[in-house]
Design a protein around this nucleic acid. Structure first.
Lengths: 140, 140
DNA sequence: TCTTGCACCTCTAGCCGCTAGAGGATGTAG
DNA sequence: CTACATCCTCTAGCGGCTAGAGGTGCAAGA
């Protein structure tokens, strides 16, 4: 049986070494076995789990949501309704965030376009920030 | 001269009371004068400054960017090139964030649509998370 | 075999931008 | 005068890591 060091696990999963230890410390990853010299020794399943966590983090899932998803993955005979619900909730969050950012984008564009590159007392950027009423899209 | 309490300042600016104190503590807002009983007493300029900060925070500017913008506002004869640069940088950030979130959205939609509401071992949500290679848009 | 040098270990503290709570003082209305 | 909201300071905590100190393990070259 090949032993996988934490560095190797990090490389293969794309999760940084201190982050792997962090995930272990919060119980997202089971504590691996240790070598004689007290060094962590991971097995391939741990790498998969780390990759799963990393992917979910990239998709913006919170640690607690990932914990729930991992619990589901660990017991494949359960209904996947919860996984579906978690993903749907995340989708709604993302959609709201996009809408909000689009409004911000419009606002920032107006600010930047209106800037005559003169002095601060005529600067639209500063002006709009100082007075929310000047916003074209006040929904942020 | 009317004295504005911290609670009133919070109400008028839309910044929470502890956050007002926090902004003072990090030097974003000058320490206001105090009443005989050591209570903060703000003036209308402070309310404006707080509203400016709040608006900038809503637009996602970082505290240090806001500090820079406030410095510019305090000296209206300066060129507004820096304000412009800060806003442009923020605009680029927002655009990138939107692009990234759109990719996430597509991914999450595929996951949710593919879910047959059966058991976890057939769940597309879990499956895709476990294997990044199944992503339709691997750019996240 | 020895030494070099990287990778590993634990532990604590820090990042951002607040937020919460303890424990007490002040101010105001009835 | 009492009740009660609001204020004060201070410390600690949130999420999700990241950085650094100070020490140990291990493999490869001389």
């Amino acid at each position: 049986m090949k032993k996988i060091t934490i560095g190797e696990a990090a490389r293969q999963s794309g999760v940084k070494v201190p982050t792997v230890r962090y995930y272990e410390s919060i119980g997202l990853l089971a504590a691996p076995s240790r070598s004689e010299g007290n060094q962590r020794s991971f097995d391939p399943a741990d790498i998969n789990r780390l990759a799963f966590i990393r992917h979910a983090r990239e998709l913006g899932f919170e640690i607690e949501a990932i914990r729930a998803l991992l619990t589901l993955q660990d017991d494949p005979h359960q209904s996947c309704a919860s996984a579906d619900a978690i993903a749907k909730a995340r989708l709604i969050e993302v959609e709201q965030r996009i809408r909000s950012l689009m409004a911000l984008k419009a606002e920032l564009e107006t600010m930047v376009e209106g800037c005559g590159h003169g002095r601060v007392d005529q600067c639209r950027v500063i002006e709009v920030l100082a007075d929310h009423g000047q916003c074209t899209h006040p929904h942020h």
